[in-house]
Write a protein that binds this DNA or RNA. Structure first.
Lengths: 222, 222
DNA sequence: TAGATTGTTAATCGATTAACAATC
DNA sequence: TAGATTGTTAATCGATTAACAATC
């Protein structure tokens, strides 16, 4: 039912960070220009697709030369707002929550978790990776006062909807949901589901097919 | 370049675990049958799409009655092998690695991380969530002896390719990669990328567009 | 029976891929 | 200049959505 309103296709949106990492590494090695052919060889993607993707950055390449890497990096940073900082609240200080609290990589993406919430009194009051764990009751008030717009949900699935309700009620505009449930939120609130089980399902299925396929090839080869 | 060999479209593959969780919850509440209309309302998906997705399980529904939930659950379990156990090795005991080692949910998906590896001598020899951390040098030998087919990569991006090489060399057939790099592996080895930056990028972009869109709506309303 | 709901076939939509002219 | 590489337009492909007959 969900409609993508962004002018950039979601698959492209997902590939852009990958280009970014790649280009950054290449740039740091001292390279200044790069062609789609070259990128495609390293990233195992179709050069035409890369050209299409990169066109959304607004940066034009030069025939025979390729793209200026620095310009691309700047454009992608600008596009995603990697040089601004989006502050977020996280709810659910379990294993996954902790991992996200400790993930230094977020600063590269202009993303910062500034407080964590949990209902477990043993956790409340503690600090994890220099981020305070507060009681969930404080969420709404703090959220409004700090004007936080992004919420991260890392609670067990049974509690996810309840947490989402609190977030919506507190003015959160975007939810990054790690619980395997479809959250019910008003349409103006954006939800991005990060469902670990989906990735795992795809992986195991691919392995099954790949093994079958390769054993067949062997049989044929006999 | 990658070709999907599975007979089931990847989007469907990704939605099936979500149906599974939902159906399980509904079944535990005592319900025995369910229609696509009903599922669609709860999961905010198109009923026709759900029907299409569920058709891949081989379970047929009855007009006016819907699907037998228990049969669907069984079929999805069978389909993904949730009742077998796939053993895996994890490399990289940082924050994310730890979180995965401690994630109890995996047992539901027939997935089990049986050993962890790291190059940090301070970690080697310790146990994290009852899983031993071993030196990376032991990977190849143990992997072959235990016939492990799945590897999880949670090392920093600079080391990911090196780890992937070790995995391939050791007979790993599927890699679940959490580092934001495109791994180079032989074509018979399957890689599933779980790129956190991509999800985040999609979320922040959606929020931007959504905010713009909603403020426009307000303007129009004036 | 009447109507909810299924499964299937056809139409639409969007992303990827192919073809090709433009140009550094 | 010749050729690598770009950007664009058209063709293909695959998934989603719409239409509808079948049926419990």
């Amino acid at each position: 039912m969900e409609k993508q309103v962004v002018g950039v296709p979601e698959p492209t949106l997902r590939r852009l960070p990958l280009y970014y990492h790649y280009l950054k590494a290449v740039f740091e090695k001292g390279r200044e220009h790069i062609s789609c052919t070259h990128i495609g060889r390293d990233l195992d993607l179709d050069p035409v697709q890369i050209r299409k993707d990169l066109s959304f950055t607004g940066i034009r390449g030069l025939p025979k030369v390729g793209y200026q890497i620095e310009a691309l990096l700047g454009a992608i940073e600008e596009f995603f707002g990697y040089n601004r900082v989006d502050e977020a609240f996280l709810v659910g200080v379990g294993n996954l929550g902790r991992a996200l609290l400790g993930y230094e990589g977020f600063s590269r993406y202009g993303f910062k978790i500034v407080a964590a919430f949990d209902q477990n009194p043993d956790l409340v009051g503690s600090e994890i990776h220099q981020i305070s764990v507060l009681p969930i009751e404080k969420f709404a008030d703090l959220c409004r006062r700090m004007q936080i717009k992004i919420g991260v949900i890392t609670v067990p699935e049974q509690q996810a909807q309840k947490v989402a309700d609190i977030m919506v009620e507190s003015g959160i505009k975007g939810i990054w949901n790690f619980a395997p449930v479809a959250l019910k939120v008003p349409e103006e609130v954006v939800v991005e589901n990060e469902i670990i089980a989906s990735g795992l399902a795809v992986l195991t299925k691919k392995i099954q097919t790949s093994l079958r396929f390769n054993s067949k090839k062997q049989e044929v080869a006999k």
